[in-house]
Amino acid sequence: MNVFRILGDLSHLLAMFLLLVKIWRSKSCAGISGKSQILFALVFTTRYLDLFSNFISIYNTVMKVVFLLCAYVTVYMIYWKFRKTFDIENDTFRLEFLLVPVIGLSFLVNYSYTPTEVLWTFSIYLESVAILPQLFMISKTGEAETITTHYLFFLGLYRALYLANWIWRYQTENFYDQISVVSGVVQTIFYCDFFYLYVTKVLKGKKLSLP
């Protein structure tokens, strides 16, 4: 466990908390893509199937449980508790455009043809594109609440910090994982445009709105 990894995990955790705080405080999930949140719940579910079969550390187990809980509570908030505030007309990204290639790729490029390994690979590929419905929604409405932009910033920062973690692990442990690294790079690239807007607008006190 290096500093990039722990900061990455904390950044991921903070992102999920920020989203729940936004929904809970405003009693509204306006501007949040329910589709992206369903994809993230699916990502954690398919990745953490080893939760009961493969013990790694207390830290690992606790974080997995917290991530799963946050993901499911968020979906519950959007589709049940505050569903009247859910902006369903703007959450129109076609999920099959993501799911079909991701399912295909996870069967084609994986480390072994076992159900858990294929599902783990699926979760890695899916995570790299799961934010697209959310980014699509923002580009469609042309704006995002400031707290939503903080959420996206920390969610992007998490994968960027994982890239630093992988470079560190390659140098110190000679450990690398091609599937995670390639997907992580793709995932981080999707946030670059947003990072630019975050730094040039939100950090200067302006609301994120697109021309």
Binding site: H12, D50, N54, N60, K64, Y111, F175, D177
Partner: peptide
């Protein structure tokens, strides 16, 4: 080397 038994990352 694939990582089957060492999925320590989240």
């Amino acid at each position: 080397e694939a990582r089957f038994d060492q999925k320590d990352e989240l």
